[in-house]
Design a binder for these strands. Sequence first.
DNA 1: ATCGGCTCGCGCAA
DNA 2: TGCGCGAAGCCGAT
Length: 462
Amino acid sequence: MDNLVNPRRVRVHKGEPQRSAPVVYWMHREFRGKDNWGLVRARQEALRLGAPIAVVFCLAPSFLGATLRQYDFLLRGLEETAESLRAANIPLIMRSGDPAEEILGLCSELHPALVVTDFDPLRIKRKWLHTLIEHSACPVHEVDSRNIVPAWIASSHREFMARTFRPKIHRHLQEFLVPYPVLDPHPHAWSSPVFSETFFSLRAGLKVDNRVQPVTDREPGETAAQAALDTFLDMRLPDYPFRNDPNKQACSNLSPYLHFGMISAQAIVLAIRRHGLDGEAVDGFIEELVVRRELSDNFCQYTQEYDKVAGFPEWARRSLERHRRDPRPYVYSDEQFDRAETHDMLWNAAQRQLVRSGTLHSYMRMYWAKKILEWTEKPEHALEIAIRLNDRYALDGRETNGYTGIAWSIGGVHDRGWSERPVFGTIRYMNAAGCRRKFDVNRYIRTWMTEQSSLLPASVQP
DNA sequence: ATCGGCTCGCGCAA
DNA sequence: TGCGCGAAGCCGAT
């Protein structure tokens, strides 16, 4: 373990560890053993203290509308991570309940020298961290293992758009885009007996909506994530410039793995460099993987109401306000959207793709969200419905990317004004004619509307 | 096929 | 203070 974690990647709360005692790494955003700065930091501190280390995971019995689909993906992936941690002489302690309370309880059992944990700008995660810092007896170190450039280094404020953020990322890449150390077995074995749930008991205790079933065509976990990356780099990366055609297989399909932290974006960039890849396709991919992904953490970090109309920029709120009473061409209920029952087969196909596959093509996601704005009575409803559907069906729901992407579509976040028109005001407009200009709309509709309804979750069956 | 206008405000040059 | 320019577009003119 020669390369240490850059201290600027760590926010130190309540100082440095003072005594030799176990180190706990509380994993709640980065579910991986490999390429994980939080774990590297925990191990580095444990080595310095001559102490053992344990990883702790706490399953919240319900979380921001997550369903069986997302819990299943997380837990199956975590089983594999538990194996690789065991091989590194690090136990995975699992609990169930309110995460902040459970971690505090564990701290009073174990009296750790230090708790290391993941950075996450979502409000609920900030609250967890705040509770831990407030009440724990030991220091807490918060590590940004999500972004290549730690969010607090990249920018101290909410960025106006990608243009203002991009140079700040590139300025710091040299410093932070460094290789990860290999996770060697930890020399100090964990000895104190401590209660842990099993994967079986965690599954048995789940109190979530099981009408949204796990996806069957995608395996979770670190190995599957790596395989998905290899396939993308070998087969599809050259087609990345055509990614806006949802009929083409040109996207990375890495979003679910990135969301659960089963793969590190930094490791992806390092792999691209190792393969000696460059050119237009690579530049485009890195722009999305790094600049725009990290911009979404910036938006949520510096916008308390990242999932509310109040989080939209001033000009967009003013414009939506002026068009509040515009007649809508169609108005659908939450349930009609959910069941893909609009007049528009293209929209329905997108909703079906989301429901069936757990992902929505990035281009269609914009169209999908903008039409929800157009076909609801008010922007507040549109935002609520889009977020609810995304969080319910998407494997990468409840992620900063999702909130930011929807806020871009409905609220002009990181965008500029465009021609004024009904309902949208000066928010950028999209329609099916544009899609027809760009790709074979009927083929996309055929792909997703001819699926057998038996493959759909119970909640969308007639 | 390609171009310009639509519309907004940041960040930089002056 | 003025000016260039931008996360994914649309539309009408040429």
